[in-house]
Amino acid sequence: MGNITLKKVNKSFGETQVIPAIDLTIEDGEFVVFVGPSGCGKSTLLRLIAGLEDTTSGTIEIDGRDVTGEAPAKRGLAMVFQSYALYPHMTVRNNIAFPLKMAKLDAALIDKKVTDAARVLNLTSYLDRRPGQLSGGQRQRVAIGRAIVREPSAFLFDEPLSNLDASLRGTMRLEISELHQQLKTTMVYVTHDQVEAMTMADKIVVLNAGNIEQVGSPLELYNKPDNLFVAGFIGSPRMNFATGAVSAPFNAHTIGFRPEHTRLSGESGSWKGTVGVAEHLGSDTFLHVHVDGIGMVTVRTSGDVAVHHGDTVFLTPDADRIHRFDAKGLAIR
């Protein structure tokens, strides 16, 4: 089991409030991603759940048990750190075995569990190496191995992929997702990368300046962002925004439309603009079009569009895909 419930959890460092009272429920077996720009408090929130930081007020419950004052090890959670935090003086085997040794398990049982974990994570042939002799991806897997042998009620990941290169990041993303499918254990994952959030999460928690901006499934957030922040943060390339004379006909302070929901035409459309940069990716083309009254608008079109710098084009947003926001930046539905 792995229900995690936060009730009015608040964290301050001295005078500075990092996290104002937050309520959040994480269901058993869910893959929850905390996402937000750096400094938004997502790591602090994770560390509060882990018990590595003391809450200033509020309660944290795991499976209905109040763990607010409990030591990290007693909470039955496992954590994978950004730097992996492997013990440099221990072999891979001993690294993975460490939590079991601390739990005073029988040596034979420890050995079996370590061997099993190593097999799952393809680490069998590295068991007698030290972390210093491993590649970044292998270290990452050792850190995960150390977490899974404890059979925790939930896994906590603190930006685990940020030290890996792009292609390895893609691979590890898949591996972690597969692991979740296999184990069906609650996972709480912190990242600043909205792609990781969209691809892995059952539920995304978007944080900004310590506040929860929106909670929902990836597609809910994509289709129905509650506010300007979420609208701008989720989705790549970023949503275009327009205000003033452009948004007035829509009865909104601000309107937003995604690059992939904007049609391009050579002859006619709502707005006329000049192409600045055209990025040809093969599969898609990203056009950065300068439109009077709006500014730079990004348009995503098919890969075979032959438009170049300086061309005049016309843009039309999909009428049913326009997001409307009021003066406070909240969505008008």
Partner: peptide, 27 residues
Amino acid sequence: IPGEILEAARMDGASMWGEIWYVLTPM
């Protein structure tokens, strides 16, 4: 000695002495 290593040991269930004996001292 990185602080995350000590936190990892704490998460792994090491007591204060366990932390000192198994992790800090060797490092």
